[in-house]
Structures are given as C-alpha cells and as structure tokens.
Design a binder for these strands. Structure first.
Length: 412
DNA sequence: CGTCCACGTCTAC
DNA sequence: TAGACCTGGACGG
C-alpha cells in the first residue's frame, strides 16, 4: 500500500471503520516487532486518522469519564496520544474480529464490544514503523496531495539544493521534497509528460512558476521558456501532476486500499506505464526499477542491468494493488507486435553468475548481463506473466490488449 | 528447491 | 553508495 494515495486511503479506512467504535484497554504489540511499545491504556477511547505524504497518524482520544480519580489511580490516559506510522513496503490497517486477526498484525487496538473487534497494523515484511507520541517525521516535505501549495513552493525555492543535481526520476523519490511519491507514481507522472526519467531534475524544474496557474484561466505561459516546457495545457506541469496523479488513485473508488475489496483491477487498469508490457525499465542509481517509454535520458546508468520483465500476481485475497483479475489495458496495444518486429535487442535476462544476491533491488548484483535498457521480451514471457492459462497467443488475434501484467483469470 | 522480485526507508563503511 | 531489514509469490529446474 505504500505510496501517498494508499496511506491516505488507509486513513479513510480507519475513520470509516472506527467511526462510533469504542476501544478499550492497552495497545498490544506483537512479540516479533522491534518497534516501540505504545504506553497507552484507557477504559474507553476512540481512534481517528489523518495522512500526510507517506505517513499516517492515528489519534487515540480518551472519552470522558465520570470518575477521574479512578482513572488516575489505574494509570489510564486522560489525554489523546498520536502515533505516527510509516508503512514500509507492506503495511496497512484492518479492522477484524479477534479470531480473524491477520497474520503479521503487529500493533493491535481492541474494541469494547463483546465479540471484540481489533484494529490492527498489518505488515508482512516489517519494514514499517511507528512512533508513540509521534510527530510527522522532520525532514519530510509537505504532502503532495494535501499541502500542494507549500509542496510546490518547497521545491521551487530549493532548486539550488544539490539534491536536484540528480536525475528527475531519482529526485521524485526524495521525501524531503516529494513526500508521498513512490516508485509507481514517479513512473506514471513522468510518462504522462513524456519526460525522460534520467534528465537532470533541475533542468526540468527550473522555469516552473511558483504559483500554479493551472487553476486559473489558461495562462498560456509566455513562450519565454519554450525549450524546457514539458507543460501541457490540460495536465499542467510536473509539480502539478505530482499532485493530481496521486489524487486520481485516491478517487479510483476507494478500492485501492480496502482489503475487503480484494479487487485491484481498477488500479491495474489505471496504470499506464509501471509494470506495463511494452514499457522499458532499468534500475536507477539506487537499484530501484524505473519504468518508462522512449528515451531514458542522459543520466541513465551506463551499466544498467535490465531487470527482467517478469511477472507478478498475487492471490485473490491479497490486498496488494498489484494483483487483480481482469486486466484490460488498452493503451499501447501495439507493443506486442512492434516488439516482435524489431526488437531484438532486448535485454537478456540477467543471469546470475555467482551467488550472493544483493538485497532488495540493489543493483550490485549485476553480473555481466546486458546493459541495455530492457525492453519487454516479446510475447514469450513478458506477457505471459502470471497467467499460464492462456497460452500466449502470438500476434494474431484479437484485440491486442496486452494484458498488462499479471492477469489472473481465476485461478483454480 | 533455489532465484528473483516487490508500493521504502535507514545506517554504516 | 552499498547493505540491512523481512516475508512470500511466481518461476525455473
């Protein structure tokens, strides 16, 4: 769940599900979690949430009690407590019954009902974190979705920062300036404007107005800076898209997050570039996979290895946005065929030479393999990603809608 | 069964 | 700029 939209959807989920629910007792942490205990005990309290960029803050508010003395005597809270969460790669909130507690639930809040229910912070990989009596992490910039004006000013007033010496795709992951942007959003945003991902960030940003005139009538910027303008009348400039594209995900229908839905087809259909067949991908200088189309730009890693175009999918009940079932992605349909026609370069899969695999996405592993930008492998596997059922039909046929990745018809 | 990959930070060398 | 930190799904053999 973890980019700005998912964190915000998580806060909406908490507010919706916990509305009217009274929680009680102590907050319990799993044995395995290395995060801090939450020293909050209260006979009756409520839980609300808010999000900012890639963080969510839960507020535990004690309900008024008729007997303050009793409360003090038992060490119970009488003041609200904020807990600030970061979701890592796999965090999310769930409200369930006690016996349906998700595996990997690491922090639990119990309701006062008889068959009690539990609001839990679930995090399979445990990269997530929380801070009791916490505050928004210092150093993270304004929220790209809900503090747009200050987000924009923060970026434009610090363009001399050396952080902007880097390629735009890497700067977009810098939470000091782009709090809420993550790996799929940077790909979708740059794709919309056709900006090569490895172009120096400052070159792309300098020249943008401090004020966002898009709201106003068409400003039609003077042609003073026509050279760099990756600005389109309808979509606006890069900073505006850092605001609007995430909001599109929030407005997809709330599915993005609600685990109950377990249907991410809408989200998948929304993706135009990230993990989409036909798009290219290379690892950036931090080992993260950058998805894009066309020219990678001058600062592209020279040795980039091409991550293989694999597949992924999850099981139905999973809540990740990566899965889905029906896939229907239309846009570039042609890739299949065009790749076939001229592709050849393609990157071969990085073979592994020796052992030692680095870590997450770190690039070090690279063995020799190819350095080219990867292009999707042809029909053979890239499209077949996960779905084994349908044989990869070669060109032919129908509507070429490349299923984007992961398609899963029903698995049986 | 082993390899590769994943929506993100953190912190040592 | 590397590793570390983790679990698990999809594949390949």
């Amino acid at each position: 769940m973890p980019e700005g939209p998912e964190l915000h959807l998580a806060s909406l989920y908490v507010n919706k599900m916990c509305n009217g629910v009274v929680f009680t007792g102590a907050v319990r942490k799993s044995e395995v979690s290395k995060n801090p205990d939450v020293p909050f005990i209260c006979e009756a309290y409520r839980i609300t949430a808010t999000s900012r960029g890639k963080e969510v803050r839960l507020t535990l508010t004690p309900m008024k009690s008729d007997d303050p003395k009793q409360r003090v005597k038992t060490g119970q809270a009488d003041q609200p407590m904020d807990i600030v969460f970061r979701f890592g790669m796999s965090g999310y909130f769930r409200l369930t019954t006690e016996d349906e507690l998700p595996k990997h639930a690491h922090l639990c809040f119990f309701s006062k009902e008889t068959p009690c229910r539990v609001l839990s912070f679930v995090d399979v990989r445990r990269f997530g974190s929380w801070q009791p009596s916490g505050v928004w992490q210092p150093g993270r910039g304004p929220c790209i979705m809900f503090e747009y004006k200050s987000f924009r000013e923060n970026v434009l007033s610090h363009l001399s920062d050396r952080a902007f010496d880097r390629p735009i795709c890497e700067v977009l992951l810098n939470q000091k300036y782009f709090n809420g942007i993550g790996n799929y959003l940077r790909a979708e945003i740059l794709f919309r404007l056709n900006i090569p991902p490895f172009v120096p960030a400052r070159n792309v940003l300098e020249g943008l107005e401090s004020e966002d005139f898009c709201d106003k009538e068409k400003p039609v910027k003077n042609d003073t800076n026509t050279k760099t303008s990756f600005i389109t009348e309808e979509s606006g400039d890069l900073l505006r898209l850092c605001h609007t594209v995430p909001l599109e995900v929030v407005n997809l229908g709330g599915k993005g997050y609600d685990p109950e839905k377990a249907d991410y087809s809408e989200f998948e259909a929304w993706l135009q570039c990230y993990y989409v067949d036909g798009m290219k991908s290379i690892r950036d200088h931090n080992g993260r996979t950058m998805w894009f189309k066309g020219d990678p730009g001058p600062m592209a890693p020279k040795d980039s290895k091409s991550p293989k175009a694999k597949k992924r999918a999850k099981k139905e009940d999973d809540h990740d946005y990566t899965d889905e079932k029906k896939v229907s992605r239309s846009h570039s349909e042609s890739t299949t065929k065009k790749t076939v026609t001229k592709q050849e370069i393609v990157t071969k899969t990085p073979k592994k030479g020796k052992d030692a695999r680095p870590k997450e996405a770190k690039s070090k592993r690279q063995r020799e393999n190819t350095r080219d930008v990867k292009t999707p492998q042809l029909g053979k596997k890239s499209m077949a990603r996960r779905r084994k059922s349908s044989s990869a039909e070669p060109t032919a046929a129908g509507p070429q809608r490349r299923s984007g990745r992961v398609t899963r018809q029903n698995d049986k």
